[in-house]
Design a protein around this nucleic acid. Structure first.
Lengths: 115, 115
DNA sequence: TTGACGCATGCCGATATCGGCATATGATGG
DNA sequence: CCATCATATGCCGATATCGGCATGCGTCAA
């Protein structure tokens, strides 16, 4: 077995830096594929593939507009990620303290050792 | 080129469901590897490997405790993820409206077509 | 109809992943 | 020192990924 399919999980979909950049760009509004590809310095097929993944996890919608196909953001899928990480909010403050304590212990151990 | 190394990016590290479960478990406090493996129904080597990844992206610290090695949470690395998704907060409300409008358009189009 | 444009898809190669198993490494206790 | 327990690592197979290239398909304009 390899990694779980990126196509079925939002966490996996946004694990790709280029896909995150696409999402960021789409905050400014709908865009056609070619424009996205150009602004992100990737090939058109490359952009299409990333957009396909984003579409399959529901982070993006597409709409035909004549010759073009406009992609737009549907950020609702990001909410679970935000909430999941939010479940650790109180820990990333506390962590500083724990780390401090940890570092203190190390210093202490070093001093004790050198005596 | 394949997927970016999961070992170098928090987004990738938490793309794995089992690793997310490990992090959740560690909110309750430090744990030895075997206990984690058992509670999550995975093999000990499996747990060790996931913990390695989490350690390499800094989401987890380890501390020797005699024969055992206790793993503890360092949630600070999750903060960037929380903030990145937070950048879309206003969109996942707005998205409902847009989707409504979108659905309206579809209905409209269907009606127009059937006339 | 034909050509041009916009986009999607298919195939390929290189690579990283995950899980399983065996085994190495490390620390503890007798 | 030796046996044992806790963990890490190495190797393997199956698979999914990403990027590049060529090409298919649909739409519009002349």
């Amino acid at each position: 077995m390899a990694r779980a399919a990126t196509t079925s999980d939002v966490f996996n979909a946004i694990a790709e830096p280029q896909r995150r950049e696409i999402l960021v760009l789409l905050r400014a509004g709908e865009r056609p594929v070619t424009e996205l590809a150009q602004e992100l310095g990737m090939t058109q097929p490359g952009a299409s593939k990333h957009l396909r993944v984003l579409r399959e996890v529901g982070l993006v919608r597409d709409r035909k507009a004549g010759k073009q196909r406009l992609y737009g953001l549907d950020a609702r899928g990001l909410r679970p990620v935000h909430e999941w990480t939010g479940g650790f909010e109180r820990f990333w403050n506390e962590s500083f303290d724990r780390l401090d304590a940890y570092v203190q212990d190390l210093k202490q151990a070093r001093q004790d050792g050198s005596n």
